[in-house]
C-alpha cells in the first residue's frame, strides 16, 4: 500500500531554489503526445473522399468538437478555438485511458498536469475576453454588481481554475486509488478488470469531456 505517492523525481538546484521534475509524469505525457501525433499522422496520411477507418475517427472527433465550439462561441470564434478544444479533449482522453495498460499510469493523477491545463484555459479565456470586448468593458465586469465586490469576483475567477483542475485530478486519482485498494483486498482476482473498464474508460471519457466543455464555457462566459 506504500506505492501511493511514489514518484521518481529529478531535483535540480538553481540558485538556492530546488526544482523537482516528476520524471514518470513527463515520460507518460510524452507517450500520450507520441500516440496522438501518430494518430494524427495516420488519419491524414491518405486523405480520400472515401475515408479509411482512422480518417473516419479523426473526422468524427474534429467535426463534433467544431460543432460544440460553434454552438457556444459562434462561427467566427469557433474557427480560432476549435482546434485547441479538440486537441485538449484528445490529449485528456488519451491521458485518462493510458492507465489501463500495465506499467503505465495516467499523467492526470499528478495535480500538475490538470492544473497547468486549467491555467491554460483560464489565461485563454481572459485573453479571448479582452480581445472580444476591449479592456475597459472587460474590467467593468469585475465591479458588478457593486464596486466593493471586486475582490470576491477575482477570487471567484481564480476558484474556477481550482475547481476545473481538482475535479479532473480528484476523479482520476480517486479511481486509481480505488483500483489499487480493491486489487489489494481481492488479491487482483475478478474485480479489477471491471474497475479498470469503469474508471479508466467510462469516468475517464466523461471527465475529459467535462474538462473540455468547461473550458469552452469559460471562454464563452468571458466573450459574452
Amino acid at each position: 500500500m506504500n506505492e501511493i505517492g511514489r514518484i521518481s523525481q529529478l531535483i535540480v538546484p538553481v540558485g538556492g531554489y530546488t526544482f523537482a521534475f516528476n520524471l514518470d509524469v513527463i515520460v507518460m505525457t510524452w507517450i500520450v503526445i507520441g500516440v496522438l501525433l501518430f494518430f494524427g499522422f495516420m488519419a491524414t496520411r491518405h486523405r480520400n473522399i472515401v475515408p479509411g477507418p482512422i480518417q473516419v475517427m479523426g473526422e468524427i472527433i474534429v467535426s463534433q468538437f467544431y460543432v460544440l465550439t460553434r454552438d457556444a462561441l459562434g462561427d467566427k470564434l469557433a474557427k480560432t478555438y476549435a482546434p485547441l478544444v479538440c486537441a485538449l479533449f484528445m490529449f485528456l482522453l488519451m491521458s485518462n485511458w493510458i492507465g489501463v495498460l500495465p506499467h503505465l499510469f495516467e499523467p492526470t493523477t499528478d495535480l500538475n498536469t490538470p492544473l497547468s491545463l486549467g491555467l491554460m484555459g483560464f489565461v485563454l479565456a481572459h485573453y479571448a475576453g479582452i480581445r472580444a470586448k476591449g479592456f475597459k468593458k472587460y474590467m467593468k465586469a469585475y465591479f458588478e454588481p457593486v464596486f466593493f465586490m471586486m475582490p470576491l469576483n477575482i477570487i471567484g475567477e481564480l476558484a474556477k481554475v481550482i475547481s476545473i483542475s481538482f475535479r479532473l485530478f480528484g476523479n482520476i486519482m480517486g479511481g486509481s486509488i480505488i483500483i489499487m485498494v480493491v486489487s489489494y483486498l481481492t488479491y487482483s482476482v475478478l474485480l479489477p478488470p471491471f474497475l479498470y473498464a469503469f474508471f479508466g474508460f467510462f469516468i475517464g471519457t466523461i471527465q475529459a469531456f467535462v474538462f473540455t466543455m468547461l473550458t469552452i464555457v469559460y471562454i464563452a462566459v468571458q466573450v459574452e
Partner: peptide, 18 residues
C-alpha cells in the same frame, strides 16, 4: 447562458465560505 449565470450567482455563497 442563463443557467451558467444563475449558477455563478448561487455559487457566490460557496465562495464566501471558501
Amino acid at each position: 447562458r442563463t443557467m451558467l449565470v444563475g449558477q455563478a450567482v448561487s455559487e457566490s455563497t460557496g465562495i464566501y465560505s471558501l
